[in-house]
Design a protein around this nucleic acid. Structure first.
Lengths: 128, 128
DNA sequence: GTTGTACTTTACCTTTAGGTTAAATACAAA
DNA sequence: TTTGTATTTAACCTAAAGGTAAAGTACAAC
C-alpha cells in the first residue's frame, strides 16, 4: 500500500545527494557502514544519520554481522518513487494528446487557444 | 543530457509535499498561480516560492497571459527522476538474481552466506 | 578483563527551507 | 489616470537539516 507518508519519506530521503549516492552504491550490493562512508569526506556520525533517514524511509534494511551493520537496498520504496513520477508524467502526456487533438480541431475551424505559452510539444508530434 | 545537478534539483524540488501536489495538479493541465494556490492554506508568496523552485528544477515552465502566469508541466525532469529510481532498482534486482543463483549453487554443495540478514527475497522467487 | 573495531548517540553549531506580512510590479479595465 | 486583479519581491522569523567532536555501546579477539 502506497501511503502518502511513505512516498513523502522516500522523496525527502532521496533529496539529499549523499543519500542518493549511498542508494546507488547499495544497488551494486550490500555494504557495511564503513564501506558506504569511504567515498565521502564527511564524518561517520553523518553517514550514520543518513542511513537512519534511509531506513525510516524504508529505502534500506540493516542486518547484523558481529559488530558490522550491513545495509541492503529495499526495492518497494524505489518502485513507488519511480511509479509516482511515471504516472504523473504519463497523465500529463495523455492530457496533452487530447489537447493537441482539440487544438487541431479548433485550428481547422479557425479558433485560437489563448494559452499564453508558445506551442511547443515536449515530445515533438504526438504519437497515435 | 542528465547532469547530476539537474537530477539533484528535481529530487530536491519533489521532496516537498506541497510541490508534489502542485506537480500532480499540473499533470491534469495548465493552471495559473491562483488556481494552484486555491487548495492550500498557505499564502500566495509561499506558492510563488514553490513555483520558483519547480521552475529552477525544470519541472515546470511559466507563460504569460495578461497578468496571469500560467504554469505548465515539463516532462523531461520527471522522466529523469523516474528513470533514476527504476534504473537503481533494476540494478539491485539483477544483482539479486545473480546472488540468488550463487546462493543456490552454494546451498547445493552445503555452503553458507554469512550475510547477517535473514534471507528474504523482496520479490518472492526470482524470475528467470 | 583489556584492547581494538565498528558503529551510534549526545550535545552542539550553522545554514537553509518554508512560512509570514507588507510593499512593489505588471497589466486590464473603468 | 485611478482602481482592481494577479503575482512577485523584500524583510524577516523559526524550525529543521546536515554537519561536527566527543562519549557511549556492542561485539571479537587477545
Amino acid at each position: 500500500m502506497t501511503t502518502a507518508a511513505q512516498l513523502d519519506a522516500a522523496f525527502a530521503a532521496l533529496a539529499d545527494p549523499t543519500r542518493r549516492a549511498i542508494v546507488a552504491r547499495l544497488a551494486r550490493g550490500e555494504a557495511t557502514v564503513l564501506e558506504l562512508a569511504q567515498p565521502f569526506e564527511i564524518s561517520l556520525p553523518a553517514i550514520s544519520k543518513h542511513l537512519k533517514v534511509l531506513e525510516r524511509a524504508a529505502l534500506i534494511t540493516r542486518g547484523r554481522e558481529a559488530q558490522r551493520r550491513p545495509c541492503r537496498l529495499r526495492t518497494e520504496a524505489l518502485r513507488e518513487v519511480s511509479e509516482w513520477a511515471e504516472h504523473t508524467r504519463r497523465a500529463w502526456e495523455e492530457r496533452f494528446d487530447r489537447l493537441d487533438e482539440y487544438l487541431h480541431a479548433m485550428q481547422a475551424q479557425g479558433g485560437s487557444d489563448h494559452s499564453g505559452i508558445k506551442e511547443r510539444n515536449p515530445r515533438g508530434r504526438s504519437k497515435r
